[in-house]
């Protein structure tokens, strides 16, 4: 109960801050939008191997992957914000109060989910004129998947920021995790063309399961087994990531 209340407090504060610098949200979607405009046409021939015959089909495959990339990549960079907060002393101020340590993490991670929801909405709306159409229930399930991915990636990023503490080192670590993870998830480049061993690795990557699930949803196949498998798997992964990060928040000596 106290954790919920405290989470709400921290979340509220960060929504307030977000509302006062809305530009950061839009800057976050700039890159995906450019990707959508440039990469999808470029990749159409490659996506043909996944059953894309028209441009609309290409977007139906490309956009869900990109949303996963946004949730994964965007989330992994939130640690930098935490480093700035650590330097400014606001974290220390909170740590002297009896406020729940889990709430300090959850409130922030939920803010990150909200940011992603807004960004994804922008992208989906922009993709509509291109022929992308998603049923509302499918869309809600897609959002559930994206939220779980964001919770995971931002929790990991906060944990890394607490462990690494140096912004330069954090940049290196995050890049080294983000790049291969995105590649192995088949978010932007389809894995169909990848050699077999790469696909095998990708099969055990929970995020590539999520991408498959997302694509099923955008194709209107909510009943596809990849959807519920993806959600269940990601829920487990998110829980582990949050637990790890919350422990660091509680223990962190800084």
């Amino acid at each position: 109960m106290k954790t919920l209340r405290d989470t709400w407090l921290v979340f509220q504060r960060h929504m307030l801050l977000l509302g006062r610098s809305p530009l950061s949200i839009l800057l976050g979607v700039a890159q995906p939008v450019v990707y959508m405009a440039l990469f999808a046409p470029l990749l159409k021939p490659a996506l043909a191997s996944m059953g894309a015959d028209s441009m609309t089909d290409a977007y139906r495959i490309y956009v869900p992957g990109m949303l996963v990339a946004l949730a994964l990549g965007g989330g992994l960079y939130v640690g930098f914000g935490l480093l700035a907060e650590l330097a400014s002393g606001v974290i220390e101020r909170a740590r002297v109060t009896p406020v729940s340590r889990v709430a300090l993490l959850l409130g922030r991670a939920l803010r990150d989910v909200v940011v992603l929801v807004i960004q994804a909405a922008v992208i989906i709306v922009l993709a509509m004129p291109l022929g992308l159409f998603v049923h509302i229930t499918d869309l809600l399930l897609a959002y559930a998947l994206l939220a779980l991915i964001t919770l995971t990636s931002s929790a990991v990023s906060y944990g890394l920021a607490l462990k690494v503490s140096d912004p330069n080192a954090l940049g290196q670590v995050v890049n080294n995790i983000a790049q291969p993870l995105m590649l192995l998830s088949g978010t932007l480049l389809p894995l169909a063309l990848a050699p077999l061993w790469l696909r095998r690795i990708s099969d055990v990557n929970p995020f590539s399961r999520a991408v498959v699930g997302m694509r099923a949803l955008f194709a209107g196949h909510a009943g596809d087994s990849s959807v519920w498998q993806g959600i269940a798997l990601l829920a487990a992964v998110a829980l582990v990531a949050l637990a790890w990060s919350a422990r660091l928040f509680a223990r962190s000596v800084r």
């Binding site: 504060r13 307030l16 801050l17 006062r20 610098s21 400014s88 002393g89 606001v90 974290i91 220390e92 101020r93």
Partner: peptide, 8 residues
């Protein structure tokens, strides 16, 4: 060094 957010 204190500790406040800039935008509140």
């Amino acid at each position: 060094g204190g500790g406040t957010w800039d935008d509140v």
